[in-house]
Simulated scan of single mutants.
Amino acid sequence: MNFKKNIRSIIIKSVGQYINFLHIVQPKKALHLSYAFFSQPRIGRITKENLPKVLQNTHKETFQHNEDYFQTYTWKGNNTKILLVHGWESNSARWEKTLPYLQKSGSTIIALDAPAHGQSSGKEFNVPRYAEFINKVVKKFEPNIIIGHSIGGSACLYHQYLHPETSIQKMIILGAPSDLKTLLDNYIQLLSLNPKMHPLLEKQYLKNFNFKLDNFSVAALAKQIKIEGIIAHDTNDTVVAFEEGQKIANNWKNSRFITTTNLGHSMHDDNLYQEISHYLFGAKQ
């Protein structure tokens, strides 16, 4: 495992060095490559022929949205519906360890593959597009509960801010980042990129989505969220800093903040899932 991590670290640093070199000789190409590396997932794809076992015995639907299509998987149950929203470089199979706790309630469970992940189309992942996918699924299935992990949690919060009047009554957010600017800062640090790349990447986001990174903070948006829910974040999360979860919790007034330790970014844990199940279903479990 450490060997794989070392190899990955070497590859990441090599990419960063190459981008820094390009920035000197071909700055436009350097910007294109660095933006692509930041926004295009390298893992998380699945195919019908190589579908993880947990997704095989589900009702599958493919939805069209503008030029994109995206995949959903449904475990059919009662009239209580739960929507699961995964994070970066993942897919709907990431919920395998969570499902048993939710299925005890008899609920209908729907999982969604993000843009450029799983069996959904596209090369680029971003929160605004993910929120559009979520909204189409919410309109179709009318879930009562939404659960998001990592940047999928950020997309859930952003969707709830944009569309407060939906069927969703409770929201669970696991290990989610708050500020897009913080993610970009971490990305630049991870690749050891030339600091001059930062304003260039910010301009690219402004061009593509018509917002400045400083203005895109789900913690700030959380002030407007009226439904209740849980935010859980691990103190040893090395992917999304614990402080990001704290910022969201401080602004989402109807939320409860759960602190975990030594779970890392995945947040898979029996005790945590039992606590979430009790919160959602109470004596029904």
Rank of each mutant, 00 (worst) to 15 (best):
44 G>V: 08
35 Y>N: 12
42 R>G: 13
93 A>G: 12
36 A>H: 12
43 I>N: 13
23 H>N: 15
37 F>P: 00
64 Q>K: 13
48 K>Y: 07
67 E>W: 00
53 K>L: 14
59 H>M: 08
69 Y>R: 05
39 S>N: 13
70 F>S: 05
49 E>R: 08
51 L>A: 08
43 I>C: 05
22 L>D: 07
74 T>K: 10
38 F>I: 06
87 G>N: 05
66 N>T: 07
21 F>H: 13
62 T>Q: 13
51 L>N: 04
78 N>R: 05
13 K>A: 13
21 F>P: 00
39 S>P: 00
58 T>R: 03
34 S>I: 04
42 R>I: 14
28 K>S: 15
15 V>L: 13
37 F>H: 09
86 H>T: 07
64 Q>G: 02
22 L>S: 08
37 F>R: 10
19 I>C: 15
65 H>F: 11
84 L>D: 11
50 N>M: 06
61 E>C: 04
53 K>Q: 14
24 I>P: 00
40 Q>D: 11
50 N>W: 00
46 I>H: 04
84 L>W: 02
43 I>V: 15
78 N>H: 08
29 K>G: 00
34 S>G: 10
80 T>D: 12
84 L>C: 08
34 S>Q: 04
74 T>A: 12
33 L>F: 10
48 K>H: 12
85 V>H: 02
49 E>N: 15
54 V>T: 13
55 L>Y: 02
47 T>E: 12
67 E>N: 15
64 Q>V: 09
93 A>M: 02
75 W>F: 13
17 Q>D: 08
77 G>L: 03
56 Q>N: 09
87 G>D: 06
74 T>I: 09
44 G>Q: 11
18 Y>W: 12
88 W>N: 06
41 P>R: 09
80 T>H: 06
79 N>H: 11
49 E>G: 15
51 L>H: 03
87 G>T: 04
42 R>D: 09
28 K>H: 13
24 I>W: 07
17 Q>Y: 08
40 Q>L: 02
83 L>T: 08
17 Q>P: 00
74 T>F: 00
28 K>E: 15
39 S>H: 05
38 F>P: 01
20 N>Y: 02
91 N>H: 11
59 H>N: 11
80 T>G: 01
57 N>F: 01
95 W>S: 09
44 G>R: 05
54 V>K: 03
23 H>M: 10
63 F>I: 08
20 N>V: 04
63 F>H: 14
66 N>L: 14
92 S>I: 03
23 H>E: 10
86 H>E: 07
51 L>R: 09
68 D>L: 06
54 V>R: 02
20 N>C: 11
16 G>H: 07
16 G>D: 10
56 Q>M: 07
58 T>W: 01
62 T>W: 01
57 N>R: 03
44 G>M: 10
18 Y>G: 09
29 K>I: 11
94 R>W: 01
72 T>M: 08
13 K>I: 04
71 Q>G: 01
25 V>R: 07
60 K>Y: 01
72 T>I: 11
41 P>M: 10
23 H>V: 00
32 H>P: 00
72 T>Q: 06
28 K>W: 03
92 S>R: 02
77 G>C: 04
84 L>M: 07
33 L>N: 10
82 I>K: 03
47 T>M: 03
82 I>T: 05
25 V>A: 09
36 A>K: 15
28 K>C: 05
31 L>A: 11
66 N>E: 15
92 S>L: 03
38 F>R: 04
72 T>H: 06
76 K>F: 02
75 W>K: 07
73 Y>Q: 04
47 T>V: 03
69 Y>N: 14
38 F>E: 04
